[in-house]
């Protein structure tokens, strides 16, 4: 049987500390929900199939590719995106280190790298270079060759 009567779903979720009620189409990804419904475009779309990590966000303390999560799955979750990193007092230490180490060129992968790296440093304040490289394997960058990114994460952890 075919059921084309697709109904929007009301969800309650917390994004960067702010609780919100939103209405989502049940087949739309959380990535698209963040960008098109909530209007937070910091999270980027790269491959849209879970290979590049550009859309990395943090849900309940775990990093995920938001292209591979449905918007409706955000119900009751605690979500952190790149927009939640800087404070009115200044950039997050990782953002500052990325600037100082020139750890970006085109910038599309940067929000994903920042959110991934933050999750690592939140749990392991002093990771080895090997650990950083392993942790960031799910984030692709086609500009920098990774060395500057790894250096920036190392710097932020010092």
């Amino acid at each position: 049987m075919s059921d084309n009567n697709v109904r929007k779903v009301a969800i309650n979720t917390t994004i960067n500390g702010q609780e919100m009620d939103i209405l989502v189409d049940p087949y739309v990804s959380l990535l698209e929900t963040l960008r098109e419904v909530v209007g937070m475009t910091g999270t980027k779309e790269g491959c849209n199939d879970g290979n590049c990590g550009a859309c990395t966000i943090n849900i309940d303390g775990r990093i995920v590719d938001s292209c591979l999560v449905l918007g409706v799955e955000a119900e009751g979750k605690n979500i952190e995106t790149v927009e939640g990193m800087a404070t009115p007092d200044g950039l997050h230490p990782l953002q500052q280190a990325f600037l100082e180490e020139a750890a970006l060129q085109c910038g599309i992968c940067t929000p994903g790298f920042l959110v991934s790296a933050k999750a690592l440093l939140d749990n392991e304040p002093k990771p080895s270079e090997e650990r950083i490289r392993h942790w960031l394997a799910g984030n692709l960058c086609r500009c920098t060759g990774y060395d500057k990114i790894v250096k920036a994460v190392k710097k932020a952890s010092d």
């Binding site: 775990r62 990093i63 590719d65 991934s116 942790w135 394997a137 799910g138």
Partner: peptide, 9 residues
């Protein structure tokens, strides 16, 4: 399997 993001799910 995959990277850290994939292993979360």
């Amino acid at each position: 399997i995959g990277g850290i993001q994939i292993q979360s799910r």
